[in-house]
Write a protein that binds this DNA or RNA. Structure first.
Length: 246
DNA sequence: ATAAATGTTAAGAA
DNA sequence: CTTCTTAACATTTA
């Protein structure tokens, strides 16, 4: 379900447990869950679509992937939690998704400048990386978590519509300004999505994703599965310009 | 009801 | 060795 903004909301919901000690940890995750009991939650961070529960010596990395869900201070009926953490003031339950440990200091494992929602996000760094991949289609690079951590399919499609770039455009063919716009919008859109999601008005605000008609020219919206990613791409061939080096 | 989806990776094939 | 393809995970919604 989630892209970066949704994971930020998850973090905020978990934040009250910071400083508390895990009394009981259980679940069907294939990791040494016992290890967690008795440890204090030192902090909770996010990197892209990763939720990171920091226990000091080690960190729990939770990714919801496509089907994951969670409940705070309640449990889902008839379902086994992938991971359940019980603290003095409440509990967190994760269902499906992927859970694993990260050893040592988080800063050694994560480059925060690649997370589009992080304070440390570096648009310049992203541009530098992108310029080394001039032949790749924008549709693929926007989903690359090593460049735009936190960007998912919705953000990708909406960013390309906002910036009026056709998904099959090549990085190297984009005018420098256009590339800058795309990088800037990756972050801006993520924060817009956060606001809409928090208000429960995400669907209402999608301009192109899953739409049939272009809100700008009223033309038919195209749906393809471009590039390596082969994720569904919604775009308006009339409003979004194709930049190619040919 | 069947498929496809806000995601990712491991394993096998070429 | 590398790159591509497929399967797997597991749940909700159209």
């Amino acid at each position: 379900m989630p892209e970066g903004p949704s994971i930020r909301l998850l973090r905020d919901e978990c934040a009250p447990f910071i400083g508390e000690t895990v009394l009981v940890a259980s679940g069907n995750a294939k990791i040494d869950i016992e290890r967690i009991s008795g440890h204090e939650i030192v902090g909770i961070k996010t990197w892209g679509k990763h939720l990171l529960i920091d226990f000091g010596d080690f960190t729990l990395r939770v990714r919801l992937l496509l089907f994951g869900s969670y409940r705070i201070n309640e449990r889902r009926e008839n379902r086994h939690a992938r991971l359940r953490l019980v603290m003095p003031s409440g509990e967190i339950n994760f269902y499906a998704g992927d859970v694993r440990f990260i050893e040592g200091n988080l800063d050694d494992s994560y480059d925060w400048s690649k997370d589009v929602m992080a304070d440390a996000w570096s648009p310049r760094g992203a541009r530098k990386t992108l310029l080394k991949k001039p032949d790749l289609p924008v549709s693929d690079v926007l989903l690359d978590q090593n460049i735009f951590a936190g960007v998912g399919n919705i953000i990708r499609n909406e960013v390309l519509f906002r910036t009026r770039i056709h998904p099959e455009s090549q990085i190297g063919a984009l005018p420098s300004r256009k590339l800058g716009e795309m990088i800037k919008q990756a972050r801006e859109y993520a924060f817009d999505l956060l606001v809409w999601k928090r208000a429960g008005k995400l669907k209402k605000n999608l301009l192109i994703h899953t739409r049939k008609q272009c809100p700008r020219c009223a033309g038919i919206v195209s749906k393809t599965y471009p590039g390596k990613a082969k994720r569904r791409s919604f775009f308006c061939a009339h409003c979004q310009k194709l930049y190619r080096k040919d």
